[in-house]
Design a protein around this nucleic acid. Structure first.
Length: 349
DNA sequence: GTAGACGATTATCTGACAAG
DNA sequence: CTTGTCAGATAATCGTCTAC
């Protein structure tokens, strides 16, 4: 019997035990549910495995608070213990931090759980996530910065990212804006976990040109949508492939993008034929404020000279917001994408 | 309107068991 | 020994209906 004073403990450390310990070391903490997803174990087995690791004092378990709004029972999260760390060291893993240094302040807990959730969803599609401390170290950013970490897309683009929970304080948003302006990194992703925080962020930042002109992309996503969208669509060619595949959108793509000596408009590079008309296609599914800014620069006079309207790809949920942001521009047509189609497309690949 | 009541749900633990 | 599944139990909590 594998018992020590009644409790089941680890007798022989398994490969998966080490992977779990490593995951806890690298990401500081993971919830029960996250461990279940990340290591692809059944619910029962996850509990069992974690209990055995805990009984062996390799990990410690704590109740989650502040993660889900209006709910008291939110499950548990797990951290690696000092014993767990020496165990990793014995396995030949280079570990520098002590268990004590991996503790997370209760106020940061919901942020870290949220970012780890994104990480677990996207890593299997070729994304990589770097912890906020590593990022701050690497780019020499100050310790108190809001930046949550860095995401590297499958194609190698590096995005610093931010997480916004259910409420967004104005002070905090201004602090973030200052970071976006000062950090000098070209690409950013902002995740918003509620509809309110999403629209607050978009509204506040879309008028802040001093921030936008410093960026190559500044994408703002509703959290859940982002976890689907980013699997594949950070690469815009895949968005185009999707639009082509669904004939109901009635698009035919011109073979090449606008190029050469002809005068170009920033951000308007892709010409399509839609309803018998040539238009500039802009994908705004990512609510990229840089794209929005570029569309605003395409003024009425230019449009009258050029003759091509802008065809804007949006969703039923974001259309109102996008229209409102561009209300002074009239030469825009909106193409609504059914998010169901989008999810179908992503899950059948 | 709200305090119970009551059943459903959630997160977890337990012990048993098959198979390797 | 392990992995992995499962029925069953639990305590806390959630949702909702009902009685006052």
């Amino acid at each position: 019997m594998s018992k020590t004073g009644n409790k089941q403990v680890v007798k022989v450390l398994q490969a998966r035990d080490i992977e779990i310990l490593l995951g806890l070391y690298e990401h500081r903490l993971l919830s029960t549910e996250q461990i279940m997803r990340r290591y692809e174990m059944s619910r029962w087995y996850t509990y069992k495995k974690l209990r055995i690791l805990r009984n062996s004092r390799l990990i410690s378990t704590h109740p989650i608070s502040g993660y889900l709004a209006n709910q008291n029972r939110q499950g548990s999260y797990h951290r690696i213990s000092e014993i767990g760390i020496s165990c990793l060291r014995e396995q030949g893993v280079t570990v520098e931090r002590r268990a004590d240094e991996l503790r997370v302040n209760i106020r940061r807990l919901p942020f870290l759980l949220s970012t780890n959730d994104v990480m677990i969803d996207l890593e299997r599609y070729g994304w990589e996530m770097k912890d906020s401390r590593d990022v701050k170290e690497k780019f020499e950013l100050n310790r108190g910065a809001n930046v949550q970490g860095m995401l590297t897309s499958p194609s190698g683009s590096e995005y610093l990212f931010y997480m916004f929970l259910h409420g967004v304080g104005m002070k905090n948003l201004m602090k973030t804006a200052k970071e976006l302006r000062d950090f000098g990194n070209p690409n950013y992703i902002l995740f918003a976990k509620s509809a309110t925080s999403y629209s607050t962020i978009v509204q506040q930042l879309s008028t802040n040109n001093s921030v936008i002109v410093k960026c190559q992309s500044l994408k703002i996503f509703p959290y859940t949508f982002a976890k689907y969208y980013l699997r594949l669509f950070e690469d815009e060619n895949n968005v185009m492939k999707f639009l082509e595949d669904y004939e109901i959108y009635d698009l035919s793509f011109k073979t090449s993008s606008v190029s050469g000596s002809k005068k170009q408009y920033d951000g308007l590079e892709r010409v399509v034929r839609h309803n018998g008309e040539e238009k500039y296609l802009v994908n705004l599914l990512d609510t990229d404020l840089v794209k929005l800014y570029n569309i605003k620069q395409y003024r009425k006079e230019m449009y009258e000279l050029d003759g091509r309207k802008v065809l804007l790809v949006t969703t039923p949920n974001t259309r109102d917001m996008h229209e409102q942001l561009l209300e002074e521009i009239h030469h825009i047509d909106y193409l609504e994408i059914d998010s169901g189609d989008l999810v179908d497309y992503l899950t059948t690949i």
